[in-house]
Nucleic acid binder design. Structure first.
Lengths: 209, 209
DNA sequence: ATTAGATCTTACCATACATCAAGGCACAGG
DNA sequence: CCTGTGCCTTGATGTATGGTAAGATCTAAT
């Protein structure tokens, strides 16, 4: 048997998204940002690879430079429940696990081949020192996170599967095209079969797209 | 008609719980705490009175010195969904509303006659300036809050009504005795009738307490 | 080209929970 | 004492969603 290995020249990774992110959220000069970028840990993650598994202590937040990640839990009966998707320019992590240094109950997995930036607590500390704007942006993100969690709880308490689906496609129209439906079902808290029926009903009601 | 008004002498309000709270969460001297306590806004809230209504911008966090508060939303079909209970020593507020200066979608109501301390952003700022321990304790509370919201989402996604009820009484055994069952049902995201049946089933299975 | 695997759909039946209606109980107010 | 009101329960029935199984596509690997 002949094995053919093709070695592509390793291309320098482009971090345009993360660079833009830093320049928007902080008041650092471009020079300072470029310097930071050189120190930052970047990895290419293949579809299906895990950045965090339940039981591990989460040590980084992950910034999706390219691709798509998801965070999910697995309950006692083995069912997955998707907590969050993270396409380009999103941060994903287990905040409590990082903060309390406690084992996470989340899995974080790439669902497309992705380029991911590893953001450590130290990194956050350093940049926060350098830029008060950055600090404020992070405060704000934290509050938004809480707001979003509240909203999700409300939906789960009060809305039907169909309503939740409609909210989802309105909030994340791009994800609808990139994520398999069964994952959307998991995010919504229903089975893929139910989602299929919901979509059928909506189609019957002349719902477009 | 004769109207009889009895004027009780206004008793000085005791703030033992809040005082203890401050001394645990901060490294301030007792003298400093006593000074703070004199400035703090305290109100007696009758059962059924509201501290916040949907549409208002939330201006304070509320510390329950005595009594019991609840926060809830009302959905389009008029159904209430309880977000949180706050017995003694708990803080309750709409963080996002305060932070973003945006109209809240929460109601906060006293479900027992209560003594409530109004905690403004300025108050938080002042005490945070005085004590780094206090600042850290607040950070920690914020992270715990997120953790708790995550947990609730997980329960709603994955657990049955019965499981959620069992979690509730294990986590808040004291509330079970103080809160009407229909409110617990609302917190769990089920109807009072369903909760009644869940309890009946548990009783059949020899479940104690 | 063939196969295997993943995804999505559909049909049928099962179950959890909601809804509606009625009744019991406790407690407060006239 | 009676009466209303709020809370809880129970039964009958409805509905949304789950579970199982099968088939249709589609893609990727052999």
């Amino acid at each position: 048997m002949i094995i053919l290995i093709i070695l592509k020249p390793k291309l320098p990774v482009v971090l345009d998204n993360f660079k833009l992110y830093l320049s928007e959220k902080s008041d650092l000069t471009e020079a300072a940002i470029d310097k930071i970028l050189k120190e930052v840990r970047v990895e290419s993650i293949q579809k299906g690879e895990f950045l965090l598994s339940a039981g591990d202590v989460c040590k980084h937040a992950f910034f999706t430079e390219k691709g798509l990640l998801r965070a999910f839990t697995v309950d006692e009966s083995g069912k997955e429940h998707i907590i969050q998707f993270a396409p380009e320019n999103w941060l994903i992590s287990d905040r409590s696990s990082i903060y309390f240094n406690a084992p996470s109950d989340l899995f974080i997995e790439a669902i497309e081949n992705s380029t991911v930036i590893f953001i450590s607590t130290e990194f956050m500390g350093v940049v926060s020192e350098m830029s008060s704007k950055f600090r404020k942006a992070n405060d704000r993100a934290l509050q938004s996170h809480i707001r979003q969690l509240q909203h999700r709880i409300n939906q789960l308490l009060g809305a039907t599967a169909e309503e939740r689906y409609l909210t989802f496609i309105q909030k994340y129209p791009d994800l609808l095209l990139r994520v398999p439906l069964w994952m959307i079902a998991s995010y919504l808290g229903i089975t893929p079969e139910s989602l299929s029926r919901v979509r059928k009903d909506l189609a019957k009601k002349n719902f477009k797209s």
